[in-house]
Design a protein around this nucleic acid. Structure first.
Lengths: 209, 209
DNA sequence: GGCATAATTAAACAGCGTTCAATAAAATAA
DNA sequence: TTATTTTATTGAACGCTGTTTAATTATGCC
């Protein structure tokens, strides 16, 4: 058996999350189990329950890692020093942002899908450290929206959330075949239409005030 | 035991779906199991597998029933003879439509949530009869969008899908606490903002062409 | 009545999340 | 160094899951 000091609690956590993410990547959220994770890292399931609270806790940490990965991919392209900062107008930048998300969801379908297939009981709020990972993603959008919306904090917040949730909705329903698309419709073309009209509306209504 | 001719196959199917929906309503998708359904209708799990293909098949039929219920609720308010047809302008009608969906999701959280917690394997397409239930929902939106978009079939299709998916995205992320909302932000206020800007954009851009 | 057909069941299988007593190893005290 | 306390790890158990299958039971037909 694994000896007591082979790994610290933190090391086991890290190993488990990495193995769990690989498992989900290969077999989907449905193919994931604590026992498989334990076997993959050379421990038994009891050790996992010594280190994690329960099944939800494990999945939450795996999903958080996926969120971090998504964030790092998007930051590379759209962060402060990203290469999409200079030459794109507002529309194109936001469309590229949406396309980047859709791309990630497609390329990492199982991990991305686990983000939403797993839900805590309705009365159990998401832990704060998890919410912060989500918040970090919104900052990217808000930065991109500032030229359009202006500096108003509350409006920026709201606009980013509306836009992002909408993009996600299109992505989610498209990839799970729940939009009954036909012909040339794709997640990208739909988000492009969303952004064009939504931003046009923002500018028009902003000008009216 | 239940005798052979107590119920036809079709009756058992109906009973199972009803019992399954009740189960999901009370205990959530995670609390659902074929054995519990079988017990609830006075049969054993083997009989269920005689009548349904597998677990996915059962859930799909339960979810289809939820879609039908959602459709009937929305048709009562927004269908051809619904009472929201006369006195509302385009914006208000669409906002009410979104609010109706959000309401349904909140009031029937477990059933609504099961619609998206359950996913077939990525290579298994949704059966046609299921897609048709979704399509019926879109017709409602398209009818509401016609005054704004015009008669162009393709544009109507696309606009309805963009708008609906966006509303769903806002609803889904809000109800699962993944939007990190603060203060006065609600699913309703966000969808209202979406619709106002999106429709304003549609009108502006429509006028420009 | 007897026979074929099909519905229903009980039991089995491997796997699941979760718990817990027993054990082994490390840390500490003597 | 040895004895004792602490704790990491295990294996086995519990009741549950989806799914399959052989045996049983009820029906329709001749």
């Amino acid at each position: 058996m694994a000896r007591r000091s082979d790994h610290t609690r933190e090391e086991i956590k890290t190993m488990a999350v990495a193995a769990g993410q690989e498992l989900i990547r290969d077999a989907g959220y449905a193919g994931f189990s604590a026992r498989k994770v334990a076997t993959a890292i050379g421990y038994t399931v009891g050790t996992l329950y010594n280190v994690f609270e329960n099944h939800d806790d494990i999945v939450l940490h795996i999903n958080a890692m996926t969120l971090e990965d998504l964030l790092s991919v998007m930051e590379r392209r759209f962060g402060i020093s990203g290469d999409a900062n200079t030459d794109l107008d507002d529309y194109e930048a936001l469309k590229a942002l949406a396309a980047c998300y859709i791309d990630y969801a497609r390329e990492n379908y199982n991990c991305w899908s686990a983000l939403f297939e797993h839900n805590l009981a309705p009365d159990m709020p998401l832990p704060d450290w998890y919410g912060e990972k989500i918040g970090a993603l919104f900052m990217l959008i808000e930065a991109r929206l500032k030229p359009v919306v202006g500096e108003d904090e509350a409006e920026l917040r709201q606009t980013a959330r509306v836009l992002w949730a909408s993009i996600h909705g299109i992505c989610a329903l498209t990839l799970t075949n729940k939009l009954t698309l036909v012909g040339v419709e794709t997640a990208e073309s739909l988000t492009a239409a969303l952004i064009e009209n939504y931003i046009a509306g923002l500018k028009t209504r902003g000008a009216e005030l």
